[in-house]
Design a protein around this nucleic acid. Sequence first.
DNA 1: ACCACAGTGGACTCGCCAGTCCAGAAAAAT
DNA 2: ATTTTTCTGGACTGGCGAGTCCACTGTGGT
Lengths: 193, 193
Amino acid sequence: MALTTKGRATRQRIIEGAAAYLRSDEPVGVTLDDIRAITGTSKSQIFHYFPDGKEELFLAVARYEASRVLEDQQPHLGALTSWAAWDRWRESIVTRYRLQGRHCPLGTLMGEVGSTPGAREVITTLLGQWQNHVRKGIADMQESGLVRPALDPDRVAAAFIAGIQGGVLVLMSTGSTTHLEAALDTLIAHLRG
Amino acid sequence: MALTTKGRATRQRIIEGAAAYLRSDEPVGVTLDDIRAITGTSKSQIFHYFPDGKEELFLAVARYEASRVLEDQQPHLGALTSWAAWDRWRESIVTRYRLQGRHCPLGTLMGEVGSTPGAREVITTLLGQWQNHVRKGIADMQESGLVRPALDPDRVAAAFIAGIQGGVLVLMSTGSTTHLEAALDTLIAHLRG
DNA sequence: ACCACAGTGGACTCGCCAGTCCAGAAAAAT
DNA sequence: ATTTTTCTGGACTGGCGAGTCCACTGTGGT
C-alpha cells in the first residue's frame, strides 16, 4: 500500500480520532460506525487504510495509546536516579490515571480484540519496556548506594508493574486512586529499606 | 417469582454451566446461545430465571465466581497469623491462578457488562472483603510482634490487592505468574521488614 | 380429578454492525 | 493531456445475537 501525503494524514486522523473517542467516552461497544462518525470519514476509508478491518485498526490505536503511556511518564521514568525523582515519577503516574478516571483506553481495546496474538504482543511489549525502565532505575540507585544491593532489581521492578496495573484496575471499578498510591508508596518504602 | 425445587435446580445449573464455560473456554463474545447449548436449556428458560436477560445472568455468574475466588484462598486467607501461613496463602494464590491460566472468568464478565453499577458493585465488594482479610492478617501479625507497628495495615493490604490484581492481569497477557509472584514476595518481604 | 401456575421448547422478530462493492473525485505519473 | 493509481462517499448485504411469543408439559395443591 503506497500512501500519499493526504493518505497518511487521513490514516493518522482515524487513529487519533479513535484514540480520543476511547479516552473520552464510555467503553461499551465501540463500533466502526462510531469511529467513522467521529473522524469524519467513510466506511471505505477505514477499510482502505486498515484492510483487516476492526482488528487492524484497533491494534494500531492500541500501539498509539501504548506509546503515550510511557511518554506521559517522561522525563521521570527515564531518570530514576534520586529519591526526589522517584517521588516525581510516582506523582506523574497518580495524576495521569486520576485524570483518565474510569476509562482505560487500552483496557477497552483489549476487551475488543483482547485475545489475539497481536493484542497480547502490544501489551507485553509495553509492560516489558516499562519494567526495564524501572529496573534500570533501581539498579542506578543501587550503584549510588541509595538502595541496598541485596534486592533483585528485576523482581522488584516486576512487583512495581504488577502494583501499578492492579492499582489502575481497582481505579476502574472504584474510581479511587487509593490502591494505586498504596502500591507505589509501599514499594518505594521497600526500596528505601 | 416462586421457584419450585426443579426450578431452583435449573437456575443453578445455568449459573454453574455458564461459569464452567467461562472458566474453560476463550472469552471472546460469550452469547446466550452458547450458554443455552452448554447448559442444555432453552431460550425461554434463561429469560424465565433471569428476566433482565444477559446482564442479570452474567451478574449472577459474576457473584458466583467472586465467592469462589475467596473460597479458593481458604483456610489460609482467614488465618494469616504466622509467616508459614502467609507462605501457604501465597502458594495457594499462585497455584490457583497458574491453573486458571490466561482465562479470567471475572475479567470476561466485566468485559461483557463491565460498566454497569451492578458489575462494579460485585468487584468492589469482592476486593473489599479480600483486603479486609489481609488487613486483619497484618494487624494480627503486629499484635504478635512479628510485624513492626509502624506499618499501616490497611494501606499495605491495599498494596497487596493491587499487586495481586496486577499480577493476574499480567498473567493474562504473558501467561506467566512471574509478576504475581514478584508482587507477593516483595510485599511479604516488606512485612518481614 | 381438576386446576392453577411453574417449567420448557423452539420458532420468530428485529436491530445492529462488520465488511463489500462500485462509482466517481482527486492526485500522481507518463 | 492522458492514463494510472490512490482516495472518498455511501448504499447494500449477510449474519449474528438479544429478546419475544405462544403452545405445550410437568407438578403440586385441594
